[in-house]
């Protein structure tokens, strides 16, 4: 199972990287979303996959039973999802504002800081 997901994560990373390399900032933005998802899946994956059993301590029990899902990666992913969302909002606002100021979404034309003749 983990093997299949390892390949899925690899594929998502490849897609994200390809989008990152685009001149169109919107595609870069989509790459960010894809990369976040890939990383979250990878985190759960390295904590190993257990079908179906959430890490809950049943009534009348005092410690977590055997055979349940690993709780630690889940806590990490929850944090990662929220931060990923914050990052996405910020990048989106940046793209939007950049378009307002510069009138383009093409990163190869955003050369105010590094004009072509300076190189």
């Amino acid at each position: 199972m983990e093997t299949i997901m390892a390949f899925a994560v690899g594929g998502m990373v490849a897609g994200a990287v390809y989008l990152f390399l685009s001149r169109q900032l919107l595609r870069v933005l989509f790459g960010v979303i894809l990369l976040s998802n890939a990383v979250n899946v990878a985190i759960l994956l390295v904590g190993r996959l257990t079908p179906g059993q959430a890490p809950l301590i049943g009534q009348g029990q005092e410690v977590l039973g055997q055979g349940l899902a690993n709780p630690l990666p889940q806590a990490l992913i929850l944090t990662a999802i929220v931060i990923g969302f914050g990052l996405l909002s910020f990048v989106l606002a940046l793209v939007y504002r950049g378009y307002q100021e510069l009138g383009t979404l093409d990163s190869s034309q955003m050369r105010t800081a590094e004009p072509e003749d300076a190189v």
Partner: peptide
């Protein structure tokens, strides 16, 4: 995927 592999909280957040 999260919901399937024992992470309902994560799945709902996602």
């Amino acid at each position: 995927f999260f919901i399937t592999y024992g992470a309902p909280d994560v799945g709902i957040t996602q």
